[in-house]
Design a protein around this nucleic acid. Sequence first.
DNA 1: CGGTATGTTCAGTAATTAATGAACATTATG
DNA 2: CATAATGTTCATTAATTACTGAACATACCG
Lengths: 168, 168
Amino acid sequence: MNIMNGEFLASTGLSELDREVIELFIRMADVLNLPRSVGEIYGLLFIASDPLCLDDCRIRLKISKGSTSQGLKILRSFGAIRTVYMAGDRKDYYLAETSLRKIASGFTNEQIRPHVDSGKERIERIRELLDEQDDDARATLEEKIDLLENWQKRASKTLPLMLKLIGG
Amino acid sequence: MNIMNGEFLASTGLSELDREVIELFIRMADVLNLPRSVGEIYGLLFIASDPLCLDDCRIRLKISKGSTSQGLKILRSFGAIRTVYMAGDRKDYYLAETSLRKIASGFTNEQIRPHVDSGKERIERIRELLDEQDDDARATLEEKIDLLENWQKRASKTLPLMLKLIGG
DNA sequence: CGGTATGTTCAGTAATTAATGAACATTATG
DNA sequence: CATAATGTTCATTAATTACTGAACATACCG
């Protein structure tokens, strides 16, 4: 093993530019309701000039193995990073996906769509409850449920259109 | 004071339908990264047949005065609820805004746009740091920063278009 | 005015969420 | 097969976030 690899390089800190870019992705992760560490890892991979393995991330970001593994898993889950196989190396190396279209699409499909879908199911259950209501309560409630369903449909349709808008 | 108002009605629980609707908005709040109580309050106002005051919300949802006040404040901040003045009553009454367009617009302007804008500022700072780089590091880094800026601009433009899409 | 109704704020606490690190797979390799 | 390298899982701990409730502000009303 090369003495220049591994923990030794941990002290070889990130440049100010690196840190600023990572900070930017930490904020993005926050907006998207993802753990901070996910933002850190993506930011590091984004700014890195070469693919990095789990330990590279862990050491440079000074985070635990568990967080790193979990973070990479989440990023893989919606296609924000890609795995690169290096000849003669058992480790997995990762590269930041740079197509905004792909990332946005993966994110909406994996992290948003399930919520929208479960909302749809819930509205169906609510509509069943509506049938058990008194006739006088019914009319106004029905309007509200219709409105809910209308929102749900518009949200469903807007997701894919949004992805078109973001371009690719 | 009417004996039928106030705390007494706390026991007059919510119907199953009410609870399901509120649960739906709790989930939405979660997706939007808003406190659960905000979802509860909006859900209650949405399903209520009449405007409700702070105490109505507090009692029916069994949450504290502080949470209720804070929750209403947040909902007002992005126009998800409207204040209704009732003649001869000092209390403020609230009604759920039902225009998805208005709510989505208020939400993006108040809760999303500031993040996008601060991202823009950060990218500007990053670009300044780029000038301090060695010539050889510069070229590849510059590409990445260009990409970041490109994303930022597309996100900025997509926000208003999205609102158009969601319809009004 | 003084008292009351209403709403806000915020320090303290509770609940939730993320991070840690050691134990546990898994796979390659001599 | 034994060993080492790599990665995952998950119980515990740490950090964050939301909630509570009492103190405070404000405005009304007799």
